[in-house]
Design a binder for these strands. Structure first.
Lengths: 171, 171
DNA sequence: CGCGGAAGGTTAGCCGGGCTAAGTTGGTGG
DNA sequence: CCACCAACTTAGCCCGGCTAACCTTCCGCG
């Protein structure tokens, strides 16, 4: 029982690693990074506020700020003020941004389609059947109570002794 | 024909994005980054040379050097000289590294196994059937001739005008 | 009304992990 | 012996995460 699950998990883990590496190779050196692509994708359906974007991407606000700064500087995205609440800034795709998104998406999907061409019809069916299952993984998202504490007491692997970093004793 | 492929590719793309985000959330804030974990995994079967590691991970040599530096400083890995060729440096896991690897792997697979528990037996079977297919993707690795040149003439999205960077006119 | 806390964003500064260019050291062939 | 190549390392850049600290704006309550 448990062993079957563990073995399957091991295989999934391996394949996932493989897919990650594949994605990395596919995306490397392209003019739009996958993060930028992802953000633009979130804007396709209309303007969004910064917080919404950050949450959807599982990222802190400052990270999204920087991302949007770059896209805005490149003219792919524009900020506006929300008339209802002066605190919030809304972001939307410019026309150029929309066009660029279309091109990038087409290229990425095209490449994947070429990969899929190399499969048999049956393999494609198998793959298609498994997609909904894969999409379900991590849907419940247990809050990661885990890391059974064997790792909990091991220090992270860092560059240097890390001098001026306070360990946040709660102000 | 073509359309089916494209549609499937679109779905695969979406699910892949989902999985990547899942992995990111899973791994965030752990004491061993996924890259470090990956490198240690490559060392499990015995000592390796730097070039071999870099190639396997699809990374340039300098990147691997830095990675190994950190792991060595943390005592998880050790460098030695190759008696047959003084140019090459071999890297291997220390005892502590081996132990740490074991712990991390167990934790990661354990978490995945918990995800899989939430699936039905049938879903697990579907997933298991699709794993070999997923593993085949990108195996042939067409050299990325693609990026149909709509993207080719668009500049990358950067932080600053990027002054002192020469565009490499082939020495 | 006014004020203090909460909420939305930005800035600054650190770190990890990529990359290229250039330097160093050790093999190898003419 | 010397020129060249191969294996690494060092230096310096960039992207993309993060936290801490700050500013502005809203809002609820005395």
């Amino acid at each position: 029982m448990r062993d079957d699950l563990t073995e399957l998990a091991g295989h999934v883990s391996t394949v996932l690693r493989h897919l990650v590496l594949l994605l990395r190779r596919t995306v490397a050196g392209q003019p739009v990074t996958s993060q930028q692509y992802g953000v633009m994708g979130s804007l396709e359906s209309g303007p969004r506020r910064m917080t919404g974007l950050a949450e959807e991407h599982g990222v802190q606000l400052p990270t999204m700020t920087v991302q949007i700064n770059r896209l805005e500087e490149a003219g792919l995205v524009s900020r506006s003020a929300d008339p209802a609440d002066a605190r919030v800034r809304t972001v939307e795709l410019t026309e150029e941004g929309r066009e660029r998104l279309r091109a990038v998406r087409q290229a990425r999907i095209g490449r994947l389609a070429r990969e899929l061409e190399a499969l048999t019809e049956e393999e494609r069916a198998t793959l298609a059947a498994a997609l909904p299952v894969l999409a379900k993984l991590g849907r419940k998202e247990s809050p990661c109570p885990s890391w059974p504490n064997s790792a909990a007491r091991s220090r992270p692997v860092r560059d240097r002794p890390l001098h001026g970093r306070k360990e946040s004793p709660r102000p």
